[in-house]
Design a protein around this nucleic acid. Structure first.
Length: 270
DNA sequence: CGATGTCCCTCTGGTGTACC
DNA sequence: GGTACACCAGAGGGACATCG
């Protein structure tokens, strides 16, 4: 049922893989190649070309492009005025949905952000955070949220005006889970809260998030549990209760299933 | 206190169908 | 097309015992 065997980060809402900046040499290129995660480039200066699905976009300062997983792309710096860009590679359950809110898809992979230095500073802080010895991963995650929220905010009203009713249901469901994961909530209760049939809500989750509501809830709880376990003053029972499991046994069973090791071993390891 | 195993009832996901 | 409802197989999880 779960497929988190290769990388514990796969099921997380959003997770930064790598970030950086490059002043490209004239004609510097990458590809044609595919990525296994989402990758956004934001151009700070100069220009270049981005090839995807047979289309070629000529892009310049304050523009950016999205590369989706498993899609062949090619990009090349201009020979006269090569671009300098920053990039961030990320993955996660919510990545596709947030990108969609920002109006970014495989079909529409280009954006323009010329409302100041906010995005540029996000990237700069991400690069700094990636050098931190402790807490860098958390800060990177926070900065990625800030970056994406800014893209969504400035996405020409796409997010609210263009949001489909089904996406509203999903958003409400996720909000409900995030605010109630510490209680013993069920999918039935979740569906009732939104005013939808349980089966229909399930099919929407599968369609938009590729996981069932239950899987999403469990994954969310286990990620929270991982965070809580970093606090040595909390027992496994305390952590279990804090994420909605009245029975530590049930929590341990599920934790092992999702994370691949028992809570005790996880705590020792991290 | 936490891990492991077993039993058994409840809940969930998925599917087909019907309604608007 | 979007949504609700009924149904069923299988997974989830609570209760209990045992062990380290």
């Amino acid at each position: 049922m779960y497929d988190f065997h290769t990388n514990l980060r796969e099921g997380i809402d959003l997770c930064v893989y790598h970030c950086g900046m490059e002043e490209c040499e004239p004609g510097h290129s990458y590809g044609p190649a595919v990525r296994d995660h989402f990758l956004i480039h934001y151009i700070l200066d100069g220009q270049g070309k981005f090839h995807i699905d047979g289309k070629v976009y000529t892009l310049h300062k304050n523009q950016g492009f999205l590369i989706c997983p498993d899609i062949v792309t090619y990009y090349e710096a201009d020979r006269e005025n090569p671009w300098t860009y920053t990039w961030v590679g990320f993955q996660g359950i919510k990545a596709e949905m947030y990108l969609k809110y920002a109006g970014l898809t495989r079909e529409n992979p280009i954006f323009t952000y010329d409302k100041g230095d906010y995005v540029k500073e996000c990237f700069s802080k991400m690069i700094d955070a990636s050098k931190l010895k402790r807490g860098g991963e958390i800060r990177l995650q926070g900065l990625l949220y800030l970056f994406l929220s800014e893209l969504i905010e400035t996405a020409d009203g796409y997010a609210e005006a263009g949001e489909k009713q089904q996406e509203v249901y999903i958003r409400k469901a996720i909000q409900y889970i995030e605010m109630n994961y510490s209680r013993d909530i069920s999918v039935m209760e979740l569906a009732r809260h939104i005013g939808l049939d349980r089966s229909y809500l399930c099919s929407l989750f599968k369609e938009y998030l590729k996981v069932s509501p239950r899987e999403y809830l469990i994954k969310y709880r286990m990620d929270k549990a991982c965070d809580l376990m970093k606090n040595p003053s909390l027992s496994i029972s305390d952590v279990a209760r804090s994420v909605g499991y009245s029975d530590p046994l049930g929590f341990s069973k599920m934790f092992k299933k999702v994370k691949g090791c028992s809570p005790k071993k996880y705590r020792r390891r991290y």
